[in-house]
Design a protein around this nucleic acid. Structure first.
Lengths: 102, 102
DNA sequence: CGCATATATTGACACTTGTCTATATAGATG
DNA sequence: CATCTATATAGACAAGTGTCAATATATGCG
């Protein structure tokens, strides 16, 4: 918000990032990553943990990745996804309401 | 996130609030309210400012209102909507990533 | 190479969403 | 009361989304 009215392009971009987060399955996924000391997890653990199919997990990870909220790291056959805390800070900063001018 | 994996109901609720915000038109609307010293605006000014029809504005205000992000205040024929900063603080707190345990 | 396993992609389908036009409701005023 | 204006609701429609089963791709290993 940052005290000035959003331009269309900024509104579109911010909406895109927020949409990436605005899904229960992705929020659970993100919270699982956030609970790890290294902020990351192996894809292989997620379908069971989230109780959705493997392709569905893959889909959600792509959405988060496209929005810049997670990084992808390949390790042999396995793939690890890790939260990008800067991206979350950027998001929270973008939706912060300034103190009313009193 | 708050360092524990989200339960389904919490994930659903948080997703609902984030979805309410995750739309370019609503983000512009919110940023317009945020730019006002009193965090509020008359509905009558919004269709032109946002360049969408009056029913569309009404729809978006309802979405924001249902999510608890704005309050409604009727003043004669006019209706004013006002941001609820607590709701935004709640949101930003909910998506904050904890410091990694080093 | 050939097979087994991990992840990604495709395609389908039901459901949701953003927008509009048309219409309804509600408050103010003559 | 009749009428005008502000806002809300209803209904329609195109576009987007979440999920799955089926299939493709890629990596490790014997």
């Amino acid at each position: 918000m940052v005290s000035e009215v959003l331009h269309q392009a900024d509104a579109d971009d911010l909406a895109r990032r927020l949409k990436a987060l605005a899904d229960p399955t992705r929020l659970k996924l993100v919270s699982m990553l956030a609970a790890r000391p290294d902020l990351e997890a192996c894809v292989c653990d997620l379908p069971e943990a989230l109780d959705v199919s493997q392709p569905t997990v893959s889909h959600h990870l792509r959405v988060l990745s496209d929005a810049g909220l997670v990084d992808r790291r390949k390790e042999g056959t396995w793939v690890h996804y890790r939260l990008r805390p800067e991206a979350f800070e950027g998001l929270t900063a973008a939706i912060r309401i300034p103190e009313p001018v009193s």
